[in-house]
Simulated assay, not measured.
Amino acid sequence: MNPEITWEEPYCGQGNNCFRIGTDPTGNAYIAVAGQEDTPLTDTHEALRALILEIKAGRADHLL
């Protein structure tokens, strides 16, 4: 796991779709399947936050 990334608590939807979002000291954002934080996707914090809000609202759970 990258020690420079600060990960939030995992979010688990219905079923087994668990993921985490994290940020590094320079403000980059990351998203990873819980337990696979060594291979995260990266994008802007705003883009990932918007995706997570859609997932939590049940509108984008098919993306994971």
Score class of each variant (00 low, 15 high):
Met1Thr: 03
Met1Pro: 03
Met1Cys: 08
Asn2Ala: 10
Asn2Arg: 01
Asn2Trp: 05
Asn2Phe: 14
Pro3Ser: 10
Pro3Trp: 01
Glu4Gln: 15
Ile5Met: 06
Ile5Ser: 07
Ile5Tyr: 05
Ile5Pro: 00
Ile5Val: 13
Thr6Leu: 15
Thr6Arg: 15
Thr6Gln: 11
Glu8Asp: 11
Glu8Cys: 03
Glu8Gly: 07
Glu8Arg: 13
Glu9Asn: 04
Glu9Trp: 01
Glu9Val: 00
Pro10Met: 01
Tyr11Cys: 06
Tyr11Leu: 10
Tyr11Thr: 09
Cys12Phe: 07
Cys12Gln: 06
Cys12His: 02
Gly13Ser: 13
Gly13Asn: 07
Gly13Pro: 00
Gln14Asn: 13
Gln14Lys: 10
Gln14Phe: 08
Gly15Asp: 10
Gly15Trp: 04
Asn16Thr: 10
Asn16Tyr: 04
Asn17Ala: 08
Asn17Tyr: 05
Asn17Gln: 06
Asn17Cys: 09
Cys18Gln: 04
Cys18Ile: 03
Cys18Glu: 07
Cys18Phe: 11
Phe19Glu: 00
Arg20Met: 13
Arg20Ala: 02
Ile21His: 12
Gly22Ile: 03
Gly22Met: 03
Thr23Met: 08
Asp24Gly: 13
Asp24Asn: 15
Asp24Pro: 13
Pro25Ile: 06
Thr26Asn: 09
Thr26Asp: 09
Thr26His: 08
Thr26Arg: 13
Thr26Ala: 02
Gly27Glu: 03
Ala29Pro: 02
Tyr30Thr: 12
Ile31Trp: 06
Ile31Thr: 12
Ile31Lys: 12
Ala32Pro: 01
Ala32Phe: 12
Val33Cys: 08
Val33Leu: 12
Val33Asp: 04
Ala34Leu: 00
Ala34Pro: 00
Gly35Leu: 12
Gly35Phe: 04
Gln36His: 13
Gln36Pro: 00
Gln36Met: 08
Gln36Arg: 14
Glu37Tyr: 01
Glu37Ile: 08
Glu37Ser: 01
Glu37Ala: 01
Glu37Gly: 04
Asp38Trp: 13
Asp38Phe: 13
Thr39Ile: 05
Thr39Leu: 10
Thr39Ala: 06
Pro40Phe: 07
Pro40Asp: 06
Pro40Leu: 09
Leu41Asp: 14
Leu41His: 14
Thr42Asp: 12
Asp43Phe: 10
Thr44Ala: 05
His45Asn: 03
His45Cys: 03
Glu46Leu: 09
Glu46Cys: 00
Ala47Lys: 11
Ala50Arg: 03
Leu51Ile: 01
Leu51Asp: 06
Ile52Gln: 05
Ile52Asp: 04
Ile52Asn: 07
Leu53Pro: 04
Leu53Asp: 15
Glu54Thr: 15
Glu54Tyr: 09
Ile55Gln: 04
Lys56Cys: 12
Gly58Tyr: 09
Gly58His: 13
Arg59Thr: 06
Arg59Asn: 06
Arg59Ala: 07
Arg59Glu: 08
Ala60Pro: 00
Ala60Gln: 08
Ala60Met: 11
Ala60Trp: 07
Asp61Tyr: 08
Asp61Ile: 14
Asp61Gln: 15
His62Trp: 12
Leu63Arg: 10
Leu63Pro: 01
Leu63Trp: 02
Leu63Ser: 09
Leu64Arg: 09
Leu64Gly: 08
Leu64Tyr: 05
